[in-house]
Design a protein around this nucleic acid. Structure first.
Lengths: 149, 149
DNA sequence: ATACATTAGATGTTAATACATATATTTGAA
DNA sequence: TTCAAATATATGTATTAACATCTAATGTAT
């Protein structure tokens, strides 16, 4: 549905504002749908993001700050996300011997299993969203990079 | 900066995933900057959104559900947002005489004054973000509509 | 008119976010 | 060496989000 209908706004001040609102709206729209997929598995989109970062490093460990750097939404606290995932045994945690300030965080087999289940669900969700061509998808991504400057 | 550098990811599974991550990242990026602008004025981006909806209706009132319908991010609770704005005297609130379940919410002069101050700040922020042409901005918005299906 | 469903809004509760600050460790300069 | 600065992570706290549930008012069918 068109943004104008979604939020019942007849028009916007200018194309830039229209685009900005649409980015925020679409992100919220995605977030809500991701939440619904992840909820039965007991994790949040943020925790999912951390698990995927850790799978990207596996079998190596990652420090909390490496995780933080790679998070899509930096507003939340990587330390506490790791704590939540640790409580559910999706990650392991031990202080790094070379630098005892750091913590080596590694995804567990249970975490990897969870992700492989979730991959399927997420791919199904993505598949339902292919109203754009690959070129259009790339164009959007390129323009968003350009937008942020 | 390119998304790949922002979140230190060398590549993505496919263009759709790259676009999705970029939408989420860009929205978070915008949200953080909006928060910083709004903080000195004591309101959140969600409350700002509600005030703008109410200005759009002014001098008419709006019901809480009308506000909810028009919010960019529907996840939060319109009733509580109105409560917060009421506590700061940015909105007035009284039960609707025609339907006593409803509440007539109207922006106050203080609220309008706040918005006119904020308009300046927000416009300055937007102005620093014109790396795209008007056409590109419109294209992104159109493609996001198409993306959501 | 009565009873049941529906709608509008408020509220309770748990968890997550935003922001500041604290603690421990390492680095580096005097 | 010694001590201040920098770094990595954790924690404290107030606010907000997420989700369910509740109450009051209205609509509707019989």
């Amino acid at each position: 549905m068109k943004l104008e209908d979604e939020i019942k706004q007849k028009q916007f001040a200018n194309p830039y504002h229209r685009m900005m609102v649409n980015i925020l709206f679409t992100a919220s729209w995605l977030q809500i749908r991701h939440q619904r997929i992840l909820k039965p598995f007991g994790i949040t989109p943020q925790q999912f993001n951390v698990l995927r970062i850790l799978r990207g490093q596996f079998p190596a460990a990652a420090s909390v700050s490496l995780i933080q750097e790679r998070m899509i939404d930096r507003s939340s606290n990587a330390s506490r996300l790791v704590e939540k995932l640790f409580a559910k045994k999706f990650v392991d945690r031990k202080t790094c011997p070379e630098d005892r300030r750091q913590v080596d965080v590694r995804i567990t087999q249970k975490g990897l299993d969870l992700l492989s289940q979730l991959d399927k669900q997420m791919n199904e969700f993505d598949a339902r969203l292919k109203h754009l061509s690959e070129k259009e998808a790339n164009d959007i991504a390129d323009m968003l990079d350009k937008y942020r400057g």
